[in-house]
């Protein structure tokens, strides 16, 4: 029983690691641009497909593929900002609808290029850290956990210490006041979309060898990400991380001891409960609807 719990805990930490990469990007984009990016799950999917193309098909090193995913999906984020979110800055509903349109385009392009069937990504390493008879941690999962901690720490340092980070947080708090201070909202929005896209892309790249890669994999991810950012409080990066961890534990434990669908239902019900009781989320203060 203890071993089962320990294994479940490890699985949950792994899930929390990649979930928080996705959720933090989504929150960042919402905070700065004020738009909810429905295509965020598809950015994750694109990241995974970059690995399929470069690592699985062209046999290049995995690290290179992951780096390419980071840059490429970040660039897709910039493309989204330039073509859609920028022109639609004062129209949040329009931005949301446009992002749903973009989601369909990304799915269609990937389906045409790679087919709708599941892609197999060969494992990068087969090594498993055996903690005890029934508690095992594949090195690949450990890599996801470490990478996630590294990237989130880098982001945190960037936001706290650099000038751009200050400007970014300022525009997330109050766009108008920030632009009065001489901060270019356009530039900040581009940076935010790049970071959001890059984080989703690297999450996809890191998990590609561990999960089934298909053009519709973004759906379950975006649902989970919504749950996480609502529970954590829309606009709160720390909240997103904490909620990712909490959600991953709840979801993994219910999946292990009951079943996956019930876990999804519980997750969504939790989110509804938070929306009803405290719509700004457990960590949220900013009220931007």
């Amino acid at each position: 029983m203890v071993e089962l719990l320990a294994q479940t805990g490890l699985n949950a930490i792994y899930a929390a690691a990649y979930m928080s990469l996705i959720a933090v990007g989504l929150v960042l984009v919402f905070g700065v641009l004020g738009v909810i990016n429905f295509a965020h799950g598809e950015l994750f999917m694109i990241g995974a497909y970059v690995v399929v193309a470069i690592y699985a098909d062209f046999q290049m090193p995995y690290v290179l593929a992951a780096a390419a995913a980071l840059v490429f999906v970040g660039a897709v984020g910039i493309l989204m900002e330039r073509t859609m979110f920028g022109p639609l800055r004062d129209n949040p509903l329009g931005g949301l609808v446009a992002s749903i349109g973009f989601l369909l385009i990304l799915q269609a392009l990937v389906s045409v290029q790679f087919g709708v069937r599941m892609e197999h990504v060969p494992p990068v390493t087969q090594d498993v850290i055996v903690i005890s008879e029934k508690v095992r941690l594949p090195v690949q999962r450990l890599a996801v956990i470490i990478a996630s901690i590294v990237f989130l720490s880098l982001l945190w340092i960037f936001l706290r210490k650099s000038k751009f980070g200050w400007a970014l947080r300022a525009s997330a708090q109050d766009r108008e006041a920030a632009s009065l201070q001489g901060i270019s909202i356009t530039r900040i929005s581009i940076i935010a979309m790049f970071i959001g896209g890059a984080l989703a892309g690297i999450a996809g790249a890191l998990t590609a060898p561990l999960i089934s890669v298909n053009p519709h994999m973004g759906h379950s991810v975006i649902v989970a990400a919504f749950i996480v950012i609502i529970v954590g409080g829309v606009g709160s990066l720390e909240g997103a991380v904490v909620a990712s961890i909490a959600y991953a534990f709840v979801h993994t434990i219910i999946t292990t001891f009951w079943d996956g669908v019930i876990a999804d239902i519980v997750g969504l019900a939790l989110m509804l409960a938070v929306l009803i009781i405290k719509p700004t989320g457990l960590f949220g203060t900013a009220d931007r609807a």
Binding site: A98, I100, G101, F102, L104, I105, A108, L109, S111
Partner: peptide, 10 residues
Amino acid sequence: RPFVYGLLMI
């Protein structure tokens, strides 16, 4: 179809 729909939407 999804591509065209998405494009039309945007």
